[in-house]
């Protein structure tokens, strides 16, 4: 399953999951949300993601979901909700409304996590370049920026330490700390651009392609299932019930 999920074309996966997300935005049914949430969570865990890390990531999401539930519960529209699966299971519309809010938070987060845990960033950007025709300059610029992000975090710690080393106390992310970081980022980007050019990167010119992601049958099946079948089934189900 791990190989399968990671082997899917990133652009197709991105488009499919976007369609699922958009479909769910128009559906007011906690049961559908809950099913999609559970499937996404299961797939994330099957992808070989570290259980502890997944749970830690869900911790703030659960808090937000609880908050969303209370909002939905408190500001219910009292019976004006569309008729749906939940009305069979949950008679109280206030609770139903809260559940719609809460499950929506959970399902969006789970789709995002599923995508993040099963997609390699290099493959993602390369796939955007090949399949969605993202300009080369933007694609590789994005990758380079991604590469220096850990360095920026290290620089941030270093800059804070520099203030501490002179007996000056600063609040986290205060402008005084961020300013040197900004100056350095500009310099880094210049240095990186020059280094890339020095390796023959043009930004516009012809390049050969090696191991670039392609669209296989399985990706096409996924597109059909998630972009066509899923919205139709969900709409029909919610209408019937």
């Amino acid at each position: 399953m791990r190989q399968f999920l990671r082997g899917l074309n990133p652009s197709c996966k991105f488009v499919s999951l976007m369609v699922v997300t958009l479909t769910l935005a128009f559906v007011h049914d906690p049961a559908v949300n809950a099913i999609v949430f559970l499937v996404s969570l299961l797939l994330t865990l099957c992808s070989g993601a570290d259980l502890k890390r997944v749970l830690l990531l869900y911790l703030p999401i659960l808090l937000v979901a609880a908050g969303a539930f209370m909002t939905g519960y408190r500001y219910s529209t009292n019976g004006d909700l569309p008729s749906n699966l939940t009305s069979v299971l949950v008679s109280d519309t206030r609770i139903g409304n809260g559940l719609i809010f809460a499950t929506r938070v959970l399902v969006y987060a789970s789709i995002g996590f599923l995508f993040a845990f099963t997609t390699d960033r290099i493959q993602l950007v390369r796939s955007f370049e090949k399949q969605l025709h993202l300009p080369q300059l933007f694609a590789y610029g994005l990758l380079a920026a991604w590469g220096i992000f850990p360095q920026m975090m290290q620089e941030y710690r270093r800059t804070r330490a520099a203030f501490k080393a002179r007996g000056l106390r600063v609040l986290p992310f205060s402008p005084a700390v961020l300013k040197p970081l900004l100056v350095k980022s500009v310099r880094w980007s210049e240095a990186l651009a020059v280094a890339m050019e020095s390796k023959g990167f043009d930004g516009h010119g012809e390049r050969s392609s090696y191991e670039a992601p392609t669209v296989r049958t399985v990706d096409k099946v996924m597109l059909v299932l998630l972009c066509l079948v899923f919205p139709v089934v969900v709409v029909l189900l919610t209408r019937v019930f």
Binding site: I122, G147, I148, A191, L192, A195, M196, F201
Partner: peptide, 15 residues
């Protein structure tokens, strides 16, 4: 003509 730079951290764009 190609160049090798001073800062080893700022020469790569891949992972």
């Amino acid at each position: 003509v190609s160049m090798m730079f001073q800062n080893p951290d700022l020469q790569f764009c891949m992972d």
